[in-house]
Amino acid sequence: MRLPAAARHAGTAAGLAALSVLAYVLLKNVQGDRGQVVLLIVVWTIALTGLNLIQGLGGYPSLAHVSFFAGGAYLSAYLLGKGLPMAVCAALAVGGTMLAGLVVALVFSRTRGQYFAIGTMFFTAVVNLVLTNAAGVTGGPNGRPVDLGFSLDATLVLLAASLGLSLGAFHVLARTRFGDRLRAVREDEDLAQHVGVPTARVKLVAMVASSAFGAWAGVLFAQYNGVIAPSQFTFVQSFLMLVAIGLGGSGRLLAPLVGSAIVIGFTQLIKLGPGISQIALGVLFILVTLLVPNGVLGGITGLWRRVRPGRAGGPAAEPPRVRAKEEVAS
Protein backbone atom coordinates (compact mmCIF):
# COMPACT_ATOMS: atom_id res chain seq x y z
CA MET A 1 0.00 0.00 0.00
CA ARG A 2 1.34 3.43 -0.94
CA LEU A 3 1.10 6.16 1.70
CA PRO A 4 -0.42 9.57 0.83
CA ALA A 5 2.11 12.16 -0.34
CA ALA A 6 1.72 14.32 2.78
CA ALA A 7 2.42 11.35 5.04
CA ARG A 8 5.49 10.40 2.99
CA HIS A 9 6.85 13.96 3.14
CA ALA A 10 6.22 14.09 6.89
CA GLY A 11 8.04 10.78 7.22
CA THR A 12 10.98 12.11 5.23
CA ALA A 13 11.10 15.26 7.37
CA ALA A 14 11.03 13.18 10.56
CA GLY A 15 13.74 10.90 9.20
CA LEU A 16 15.99 13.82 8.32
CA ALA A 17 15.42 15.40 11.75
CA ALA A 18 16.41 12.11 13.37
CA LEU A 19 19.48 11.99 11.13
CA SER A 20 20.48 15.46 12.33
CA VAL A 21 20.11 14.42 15.96
CA LEU A 22 22.17 11.29 15.35
CA ALA A 23 24.83 13.36 13.60
CA TYR A 24 25.00 15.75 16.56
CA VAL A 25 25.36 12.89 19.03
CA LEU A 26 28.15 11.32 16.97
CA LEU A 27 29.95 14.61 16.37
CA LYS A 28 29.80 15.36 20.08
CA ASN A 29 30.87 11.97 21.37
CA VAL A 30 33.11 10.28 18.83
CA GLN A 31 36.70 11.39 19.24
CA GLY A 32 40.02 10.96 17.48
CA ASP A 33 40.33 9.53 13.99
CA ARG A 34 36.77 8.23 14.03
CA GLY A 35 35.51 11.65 15.09
CA GLN A 36 37.30 13.10 12.06
CA VAL A 37 35.59 10.49 9.87
CA VAL A 38 32.17 11.47 11.25
CA LEU A 39 32.96 15.15 10.65
CA LEU A 40 34.06 14.51 7.06
CA ILE A 41 30.98 12.41 6.31
CA VAL A 42 28.69 15.16 7.62
CA VAL A 43 30.57 17.94 5.81
CA TRP A 44 30.76 15.99 2.56
CA THR A 45 27.07 15.13 2.74
CA ILE A 46 26.19 18.82 2.99
CA ALA A 47 28.56 19.70 0.13
CA LEU A 48 27.57 16.74 -2.04
CA THR A 49 23.88 17.53 -1.76
CA GLY A 50 24.69 20.45 -4.03
CA LEU A 51 26.60 18.19 -6.39
CA ASN A 52 23.61 15.86 -6.38
CA LEU A 53 21.61 18.68 -7.97
CA ILE A 54 23.90 19.42 -10.91
CA GLN A 55 25.33 15.92 -11.36
CA GLY A 56 22.65 13.69 -9.90
CA LEU A 57 19.52 15.35 -11.24
CA GLY A 58 21.05 17.33 -14.11
CA GLY A 59 23.58 14.78 -15.33
CA TYR A 60 26.42 17.32 -15.47
CA PRO A 61 29.59 15.80 -13.95
CA SER A 62 31.08 18.80 -12.19
CA LEU A 63 34.66 18.56 -11.01
CA ALA A 64 34.52 22.14 -9.76
CA HIS A 65 32.71 21.24 -6.58
CA VAL A 66 35.73 21.02 -4.33
CA SER A 67 36.61 24.56 -5.47
CA PHE A 68 33.28 25.80 -4.12
CA PHE A 69 34.01 23.90 -0.92
CA ALA A 70 37.37 25.67 -0.79
CA GLY A 71 35.71 29.00 -1.64
CA GLY A 72 33.53 28.82 1.47
CA ALA A 73 36.42 27.74 3.66
CA TYR A 74 39.03 30.26 2.48
CA LEU A 75 36.73 33.25 2.03
CA SER A 76 35.23 32.88 5.48
CA ALA A 77 38.68 32.39 7.01
CA TYR A 78 40.08 35.44 5.20
CA LEU A 79 37.15 37.66 6.17
CA LEU A 80 37.27 36.48 9.78
CA GLY A 81 40.92 37.44 9.79
CA LYS A 82 39.83 40.95 8.83
CA GLY A 83 37.69 41.12 11.96
CA LEU A 84 34.24 40.84 10.40
CA PRO A 85 31.45 39.15 12.37
CA MET A 86 31.08 35.43 11.66
CA ALA A 87 27.54 35.71 10.25
CA VAL A 88 28.72 38.36 7.77
CA CYS A 89 31.79 36.28 6.88
CA ALA A 90 29.64 33.21 6.26
CA ALA A 91 27.14 35.15 4.15
CA LEU A 92 29.88 36.81 2.08
CA ALA A 93 31.77 33.53 1.69
CA VAL A 94 28.68 31.73 0.42
CA GLY A 95 27.62 34.69 -1.74
CA GLY A 96 31.09 35.14 -3.22
CA THR A 97 31.35 31.44 -3.99
CA MET A 98 27.92 31.49 -5.64
CA LEU A 99 29.22 34.29 -7.84
CA ALA A 100 32.16 32.06 -8.79
CA GLY A 101 29.64 29.29 -9.47
CA LEU A 102 27.79 31.62 -11.81
CA VAL A 103 31.00 32.41 -13.70
CA VAL A 104 31.87 28.70 -13.98
CA ALA A 105 28.36 27.97 -15.22
CA LEU A 106 28.46 30.81 -17.77
CA VAL A 107 31.79 29.58 -19.12
CA PHE A 108 31.18 25.83 -19.13
CA SER A 109 27.42 25.43 -19.60
CA ARG A 110 27.97 25.41 -23.37
CA THR A 111 29.88 22.16 -22.96
CA ARG A 112 28.43 18.76 -22.14
CA GLY A 113 29.47 15.39 -20.74
CA GLN A 114 33.18 14.77 -20.55
CA TYR A 115 33.95 18.23 -21.94
CA PHE A 116 32.10 19.80 -19.02
CA ALA A 117 34.00 17.49 -16.64
CA ILE A 118 37.35 18.41 -18.21
CA GLY A 119 36.56 22.13 -18.16
CA THR A 120 35.52 22.12 -14.52
CA MET A 121 38.54 19.95 -13.67
CA PHE A 122 40.84 22.65 -15.03
CA PHE A 123 38.94 25.26 -13.02
CA THR A 124 39.68 23.24 -9.89
CA ALA A 125 43.33 22.90 -10.91
CA VAL A 126 43.59 26.69 -11.31
CA VAL A 127 41.88 27.33 -7.98
CA ASN A 128 44.27 24.93 -6.28
CA LEU A 129 47.24 26.68 -7.87
CA VAL A 130 45.98 30.00 -6.58
CA LEU A 131 45.46 28.58 -3.08
CA THR A 132 48.97 27.16 -3.14
CA ASN A 133 50.73 30.24 -4.48
CA ALA A 134 48.82 33.26 -3.17
CA ALA A 135 50.56 32.79 0.15
CA GLY A 136 49.79 36.31 1.38
CA VAL A 137 46.09 35.52 1.52
CA THR A 138 45.85 31.75 1.68
CA GLY A 139 48.91 30.88 3.68
CA GLY A 140 50.41 29.00 0.75
CA PRO A 141 50.96 25.24 0.61
CA ASN A 142 51.02 24.92 4.38
CA GLY A 143 47.60 26.53 4.67
CA ARG A 144 46.34 29.02 7.16
CA PRO A 145 44.73 28.99 10.59
CA VAL A 146 41.06 29.86 10.89
CA ASP A 147 39.86 32.18 13.63
CA LEU A 148 37.06 30.87 15.77
CA GLY A 149 33.83 32.49 14.58
CA PHE A 150 31.39 30.03 16.08
CA SER A 151 31.89 28.24 19.35
CA LEU A 152 32.67 24.53 18.94
CA ASP A 153 29.23 23.55 20.18
CA ALA A 154 27.54 26.03 17.83
CA THR A 155 29.57 24.58 14.96
CA LEU A 156 28.44 21.07 15.87
CA VAL A 157 24.81 22.19 16.04
CA LEU A 158 25.13 23.95 12.68
CA LEU A 159 26.80 20.92 11.10
CA ALA A 160 24.10 18.56 12.35
CA ALA A 161 21.23 20.90 11.44
CA SER A 162 22.72 21.66 8.02
CA LEU A 163 22.91 17.95 7.29
CA GLY A 164 19.15 17.49 7.65
CA LEU A 165 18.25 20.87 6.17
CA SER A 166 20.39 20.46 3.06
CA LEU A 167 18.97 17.02 2.37
CA GLY A 168 15.50 18.44 3.04
CA ALA A 169 16.13 21.27 0.60
CA PHE A 170 17.15 18.73 -2.02
CA HIS A 171 14.01 16.70 -1.29
CA VAL A 172 11.88 19.79 -1.93
CA LEU A 173 13.84 21.03 -4.97
CA ALA A 174 13.73 17.61 -6.60
CA ARG A 175 9.94 17.71 -6.52
CA THR A 176 9.54 21.16 -8.03
CA ARG A 177 9.39 22.08 -11.71
CA PHE A 178 13.08 22.90 -11.35
CA GLY A 179 13.78 19.29 -10.42
CA ASP A 180 11.77 18.02 -13.37
CA ARG A 181 13.63 20.38 -15.67
CA LEU A 182 16.99 19.13 -14.42
CA ARG A 183 15.91 15.51 -14.98
CA ALA A 184 14.79 16.46 -18.47
CA VAL A 185 18.22 17.99 -19.15
CA ARG A 186 19.86 14.79 -17.93
CA GLU A 187 17.63 12.60 -20.11
CA ASP A 188 17.96 14.61 -23.33
CA GLU A 189 18.97 18.25 -23.27
CA ASP A 190 18.03 18.97 -26.89
CA LEU A 191 14.61 17.43 -26.47
CA ALA A 192 14.16 19.36 -23.24
CA GLN A 193 14.77 22.60 -25.15
CA HIS A 194 12.23 21.58 -27.73
CA VAL A 195 9.50 21.05 -25.17
CA GLY A 196 10.20 24.54 -23.84
CA VAL A 197 12.71 24.01 -21.03
CA PRO A 198 15.09 27.00 -20.81
CA THR A 199 18.02 24.66 -20.38
CA ALA A 200 20.76 27.29 -20.20
CA ARG A 201 19.00 29.05 -17.31
CA VAL A 202 18.23 25.78 -15.54
CA LYS A 203 21.90 24.78 -15.65
CA LEU A 204 23.01 28.20 -14.38
CA VAL A 205 20.62 28.05 -11.44
CA ALA A 206 21.62 24.47 -10.65
CA MET A 207 25.33 25.32 -10.68
CA VAL A 208 24.87 28.40 -8.50
CA ALA A 209 22.67 26.48 -6.03
CA SER A 210 25.18 23.65 -6.06
CA SER A 211 28.02 26.05 -5.23
CA ALA A 212 26.04 27.41 -2.26
CA PHE A 213 25.86 23.97 -0.65
CA GLY A 214 29.58 23.45 -1.26
CA ALA A 215 30.48 26.86 0.16
CA TRP A 216 28.42 26.46 3.32
CA ALA A 217 30.00 23.07 3.93
CA GLY A 218 33.40 24.76 3.48
CA VAL A 219 32.56 27.46 6.05
CA LEU A 220 31.61 24.82 8.63
CA PHE A 221 34.59 22.62 7.79
CA ALA A 222 36.98 25.53 8.30
CA GLN A 223 35.37 26.39 11.62
CA TYR A 224 35.58 22.85 12.90
CA ASN A 225 39.03 22.07 11.61
CA GLY A 226 40.72 25.33 12.57
CA VAL A 227 43.27 24.96 9.78
CA ILE A 228 42.76 24.79 6.03
CA ALA A 229 45.30 23.92 3.35
CA PRO A 230 45.27 23.45 -0.44
CA SER A 231 45.90 19.70 -0.02
CA GLN A 232 42.34 19.41 1.30
CA PHE A 233 40.87 20.86 -1.91
CA THR A 234 42.59 19.11 -4.79
CA PHE A 235 41.31 17.69 -8.04
CA VAL A 236 41.48 14.24 -6.43
CA GLN A 237 39.00 15.38 -3.77
CA SER A 238 36.69 16.70 -6.48
CA PHE A 239 36.89 13.40 -8.33
CA LEU A 240 36.18 11.48 -5.12
CA MET A 241 33.09 13.67 -4.60
CA LEU A 242 31.91 12.75 -8.08
CA VAL A 243 32.57 9.08 -7.37
CA ALA A 244 30.67 9.34 -4.07
CA ILE A 245 27.52 10.55 -5.82
CA GLY A 246 27.80 7.74 -8.36
CA LEU A 247 28.36 5.15 -5.65
CA GLY A 248 25.44 6.41 -3.59
CA GLY A 249 23.07 6.63 -6.56
CA SER A 250 22.95 9.80 -8.64
CA GLY A 251 19.86 11.91 -8.02
CA ARG A 252 18.71 9.99 -4.97
CA LEU A 253 18.06 11.86 -1.73
CA LEU A 254 20.50 9.93 0.44
CA ALA A 255 23.16 9.46 -2.24
CA PRO A 256 25.44 12.14 -0.71
CA LEU A 257 25.30 10.47 2.71
CA VAL A 258 25.79 6.90 1.49
CA GLY A 259 28.43 7.90 -1.07
CA SER A 260 30.33 10.01 1.47
CA ALA A 261 30.25 7.20 4.02
CA ILE A 262 31.73 4.76 1.50
CA VAL A 263 34.39 7.11 0.15
CA ILE A 264 35.42 8.59 3.50
CA GLY A 265 35.32 5.15 5.08
CA PHE A 266 37.58 3.71 2.41
CA THR A 267 40.07 6.54 2.38
CA GLN A 268 40.19 7.27 6.13
CA LEU A 269 39.46 4.02 7.94
CA ILE A 270 40.90 1.29 5.75
CA LYS A 271 44.63 1.87 5.87
CA LEU A 272 45.92 -0.20 2.99
CA GLY A 273 48.96 1.90 2.37
CA PRO A 274 49.56 5.12 0.42
CA GLY A 275 47.34 5.15 -2.66
CA ILE A 276 46.15 1.57 -2.15
CA SER A 277 42.88 2.68 -0.52
CA GLN A 278 42.13 4.85 -3.53
CA ILE A 279 42.90 1.99 -5.90
CA ALA A 280 40.57 -0.24 -3.88
CA LEU A 281 37.95 2.51 -4.06
CA GLY A 282 38.40 2.65 -7.82
CA VAL A 283 37.85 -1.11 -8.07
CA LEU A 284 34.75 -0.78 -5.89
CA PHE A 285 33.44 2.02 -8.12
CA ILE A 286 33.93 -0.14 -11.21
CA LEU A 287 32.16 -3.07 -9.56
CA VAL A 288 29.24 -0.91 -8.42
CA THR A 289 28.98 0.66 -11.88
CA LEU A 290 28.91 -2.78 -13.50
CA LEU A 291 26.66 -4.54 -10.99
CA VAL A 292 24.34 -1.74 -9.83
CA PRO A 293 24.60 1.13 -12.33
CA ASN A 294 22.13 3.19 -10.32
CA GLY A 295 24.41 3.11 -7.28
CA VAL A 296 24.02 1.37 -3.95
CA LEU A 297 20.64 3.00 -3.26
CA GLY A 298 19.44 2.15 -6.75
CA GLY A 299 20.47 -1.45 -6.18
CA ILE A 300 18.64 -1.59 -2.86
CA THR A 301 15.52 -0.03 -4.40
CA GLY A 302 15.60 -2.50 -7.28
CA LEU A 303 16.06 -5.41 -4.90
CA TRP A 304 13.18 -4.20 -2.74
CA ARG A 305 10.91 -3.95 -5.76
CA ARG A 306 11.69 -7.54 -6.66
CA VAL A 307 11.17 -9.04 -3.22
CA ARG A 308 8.35 -7.03 -1.71
CA PRO A 309 5.04 -8.86 -1.43
CA GLY A 310 2.64 -8.40 -4.33
CA ARG A 311 5.29 -7.10 -6.72
CA ALA A 312 6.99 -10.34 -7.69
CA GLY A 313 4.13 -11.49 -9.85
CA GLY A 314 5.69 -11.03 -13.26
CA PRO A 315 7.13 -8.68 -15.78
CA ALA A 316 3.97 -6.57 -16.09
CA ALA A 317 4.37 -5.50 -12.46
CA GLU A 318 7.90 -4.26 -13.04
CA PRO A 319 8.42 -1.40 -15.50
CA PRO A 320 11.67 -1.79 -17.42
CA ARG A 321 12.98 1.50 -16.14
CA VAL A 322 12.61 3.37 -12.91
CA ARG A 323 10.12 6.20 -12.95
CA ALA A 324 11.90 9.51 -12.62
CA LYS A 325 9.67 10.67 -9.78
CA GLU A 326 10.56 7.65 -7.69
CA GLU A 327 14.30 8.22 -7.84
CA VAL A 328 14.30 10.70 -5.02
CA ALA A 329 12.20 8.52 -2.77
CA SER A 330 15.07 6.40 -1.55
Partner: peptide, 16 residues
Amino acid sequence: TRLFGSWTLRDALRLA
Protein backbone atom coordinates in the same frame (compact mmCIF):
# COMPACT_ATOMS: atom_id res chain seq x y z
CA THR B 1 13.44 8.87 -31.76
CA ARG B 2 14.07 11.13 -28.81
CA LEU B 3 12.06 10.73 -25.65
CA PHE B 4 12.65 10.90 -21.92
CA GLY B 5 13.08 7.13 -21.94
CA SER B 6 12.77 6.39 -18.23
CA TRP B 7 9.75 8.67 -17.74
CA THR B 8 6.17 7.62 -18.24
CA LEU B 9 4.55 9.29 -21.19
CA ARG B 10 2.18 11.09 -18.80
CA ASP B 11 5.11 12.58 -16.82
CA ALA B 12 6.72 13.73 -20.07
CA LEU B 13 3.48 15.32 -21.27
CA ARG B 14 3.08 17.05 -17.90
CA LEU B 15 6.53 18.61 -18.20
CA ALA B 16 5.85 19.78 -21.76
